[in-house]
Design a protein around this nucleic acid. Structure first.
Lengths: 201, 201
DNA sequence: CCGGGTCCGGGACAAATGTCACGGGTGGCC
DNA sequence: GGCCACCCGTGACATTTGTCCCGGACCCGG
């Protein structure tokens, strides 16, 4: 019996997946969470064999939690399930020690199969996505550049960002300019978009 | 037997819902589509009793399709199922003749129940959401203001927007200024965000 | 017919943004 | 030690953006 932890914020999706996977003979869902912060505690409590994690969660990111999970719950394989097949996400997932990476397109039938393959020690990655991740190259943005860009997502002004990141306005503009240059875009908004698209956020 | 049409772009979600609803004794899924443009043709072909529509779809919006569906497939009730409980979406759904509006949070169990209630002629709407929609008031944006704002979503410059909408740059700036004023925001980005948030896009 | 609304444009101005050049500081690596 | 990358900041500059004013056009309801 494969013990599974399911982390997904959309209630309907979570419920549907839980019901579906519960129908499989060899799978038992030992925990369902809708918040990233609950992943590690629940895993420590229930010792699942596989953790199926969404990336975009309230609280902690699934990618974040994945690294922790690998370190603190050694027997647990991590399978990332996400809406967005962004190159940077895949890269980060691999660096965090994930064994598989699925996108929410594609048929449900793959899911149970992927879980079994992951448990058998295989890696499950969409080949096209892997190619995209490799061709895209690594994240060119500095930590600070990411911080500043992340603080600019919802239309904040330079002053707002400066306050949020505790920097001088002039410095913020320099980082923004650098980020714009590295993403080969023309302004903040495009830079944010490009960084998001690649999973660099 | 309730004949159901299911429109949802995420393959995994669509598959999961189809399987789940297929388990219900009195529900039969007669069509599944992942593209907004296929909704009406498939409905004309299969004459479903209820159409379960996502809003954000490739091709045509589910809200768009809903209005058409009501006009061209009279016996078919429309139930909107969306990730975002935005006031403007609910309002537009009602104006399009939808009988129900569900968000993808909340338990799966509600879904089958909602389908049956809709078919019985009831309206299914989350009360909190209905209150929000009423308190938010109607869309204050002009058609042109919406156009310009929509063309500004991905960081386009004034010149880009002007080219896309076939207007003078000066006019574009005027519309943007108006939109910023009406949304009570400080710049384009915040205005876009606010308009999206409310479903005014 | 006379408002009032929206549509479309222009001009002028202040503020915000993006760029560049420049400084100094730290820490890692050869 | 020297090199390099990143960090943090300043000042100056051109461009873009946001605002406010002003026209003229159209259509609709009173």
């Amino acid at each position: 019996m494969i013990k599974l932890l399911l982390a997904e914020d959309q209630g309907m999706m979570r419920g549907a997946l839980a019901l579906l996977l519960g129908l499989e003979e060899d799978i038992e869902i030992v925990a369902q969470v809708g918040d990233g912060d609950e992943i590690v505690p629940k895993a420590l409590e229930t010792k699942p064999d596989v953790a199926l994690l969404d990336i975009e969660l309230p609280g902690r990111s699934g990618l974040d939690a994945a690294a922790d999970l690998r370190a603190r719950v050694p027997g647990c394989q991590v399978l990332i399930l996400t809406t967005f097949g962004r190159p940077g996400y895949l890269r980060r997932a691999m660096e965090a020690g994930a064994s598989g990476f699925l996108v929410k397109d594609g048929p449900v039938e793959d899911l149970a199969a992927a879980i079994r393959r992951v448990l058998a020690g295989e890696r499950v990655i969409d080949p096209a996505l892997a190619a995209a991740a490799l061709s895209a190259g690594p994240n060119p943005l500095t930590q600070r550049e990411r911080d500043v860009l992340a603080a600019a997502v919802d239309g904040a002004t330079v002053a707002d960002i400066a306050a949020k990141v505790h920097l001088s306005p002039a410095t913020v503009r320099n980082y923004l300019s650098a980020a714009i240059g590295k993403t080969q875009t023309r302004n903040r908004m495009e830079a944010v978009r490009a960084a998001r698209q690649n999973g660099w956020l």
